[in-house]
Computed example of a mutant assay.
Amino acid sequence: MSLISPVTGAFYGILAESWHIFAEAAPYLLLGFGIAGLLHVFVPDDKVMQYLGRSAGKFRSVLNASLLGVPLPLCSCGVVPAALSLRKRGATKGATLSFLISTPQTGVDSIAITYALLDPIMTIFRPVATFATAVVAGVTENILNSSKGGQDTGYQGAVPLTVLPMSSATPDTCGCSSCGVHEGEAENFVQKVRAGIKYAYIELLGEIGFWLIVGVVIAGIISYFVPASMVGSYLGGGIASMLLALVVGIPLYICATASTPLAAVLILKGMSPGAAFVFLLAGPATNAATITMVLKFLGKRTTVVYLASIALCAVVSGLVLDQIYSDLGIDALSIAGSASEVIPPEVKNVFAVLLLPLLIYGMYSRKGCIEK
C-alpha cells in the first residue's frame, strides 16, 4: 500500500500537470491551427516562395520570417502548425526555424505585459533579442543546408487541398454580370474558409496530434518533478544562474505572456534581470512538445541548430542585459507588480475540452487514410 500510494499520487500529479499544460496551450493551439488554415487557403504558394522560399535567398527569407513572427501572439505549441504549414508551402528550413523561434518569444500581448510588469528597457530588449535569435538560427540552418549540398524542396507531408480560384465565378441569371461575380466570390470565399477549417482542424491536427500528446506528457512529467520553488531558490545571478535558467526553461511549457509575471517575481526574489531574461527567452521559445515535433518534422540537425541558437543567444543576451542595467545604474529589485492571467483558467479548460475531441478525431481520420 505504501508503494502504490506514491506511484498513484505521482501518476495523478503528472496527469494533472499534463492537463494543465494542455489547457494552457489549447487556446493558442486553436488559434495557431486557425492561422495555419488561413495561410493554406488565402496565401498563394508563389507568395510563400517569393518571401520565404529559396528564391528569396538564404538571408532575406529568414529576415522576412523573423519579422513576420515577432508580433504574432502564438505560444511555442500554437506556432508549430502555422510553421509546418509554411514549410509545406515552400518556405526554407531556415525561414521555418526563424518563424518557430520569433513567434512564441514575443507577441503584442506579451510586449504589453512586459511593459506593465517590468520596465521599458526589458520591453525594448525582448523583441530585439528575439529577432536576433531567430535570424541567427535561420541563417545558420540555411548555410548548413547549402554547405551539405541539400536541396531544400519543402516538407513533404499531407497533400495540399485543392481550392477553387476566385476567378471561377460565373454571371448570375439575372443578367447582371457584376452581381454574379460578387455572388461567385462570396461562394468561393465560403468554400475557402471551409477548406481551411478542414485542413487546420482535421488534416494538420491529425498529422501532428500524436507527437503533440507525447510532448505534453513529457512536459507534464518535467513540470511535476521540477517545482517552481526550486527555480526561485537557485537562480540568484551570474552565468551559473543563466545556465540553470536555460536548462529549466528549454523543456518547460510556458507562454510568453505567462512567463512575464513569473520573471517579475523571480527578479523580486533576487534573480538578475539577465538570468530572468534567459528564462523569458528560452521558456516561451521551446518546450518538450515543440522539440518533439521539430525533431519529427524538420530533422535532427535542424533541432540541434534550433536548440543551440536559442541557448547561445539567450545567455549572450542575458549577459548584455545585465551590463545595460549595470551601466545605467538601475536596481532591478525595485521592480514590483503583479498581473492576473490574460485568459481565465475556466476558459482555458473550455478550449481544452473543445480541442481534445478534434485531436482524437484528426488522429483517427489520419490513421484511416494511412491504412487505406
Rank of each mutant, 00 (worst) to 15 (best):
A228S: 13
L359C: 03
M271E: 02
T103I: 11
V181Q: 12
G154V: 12
V350A: 13
N145W: 10
V41K: 02
P73K: 03
K367S: 13
L307F: 07
A112D: 01
H20A: 12
D109W: 00
D152I: 07
T103F: 08
D327S: 15
I218E: 06
L15W: 14
A65H: 06
F131S: 01
P251Q: 00
E341F: 11
L298K: 01
Y234N: 13
G209I: 00
L29I: 14
S340W: 05
T257G: 00
G196I: 06
T103G: 04
I250M: 07
G209V: 00
L319G: 13
A132H: 02
T114P: 07
L358Y: 02
P227D: 13
Q50T: 11
A336R: 15
Q191D: 10
V41S: 04
I124S: 10
S233P: 05
G90A: 09
C179T: 11
A23N: 03
A112W: 00
L74K: 04
V43H: 01
L67S: 13
E17G: 05
T114N: 12
L52S: 07
A308E: 07
F189M: 12
E185S: 15
V139F: 10
Y201N: 00
D45R: 15
L244H: 02
G154C: 09
K148H: 11
L205V: 02
D45V: 11
Q156A: 08
L266S: 02
T302H: 06
T106G: 03
A332R: 01
I121E: 09
E207D: 15
I335T: 12
V320P: 09
I360R: 11
A112Q: 00
M49Y: 04
S326H: 12
L307D: 05
Q105H: 10
F22C: 01
A258F: 09
G237P: 00
R60G: 04
A16R: 09
T114K: 01
E24A: 14
L298C: 08
D152M: 14
D152F: 08
E183N: 11
A134P: 00
L212Y: 02
V294W: 08
E371K: 15
T133H: 02
G138D: 07
Q151V: 14
G34H: 08
P27A: 12
N64W: 09
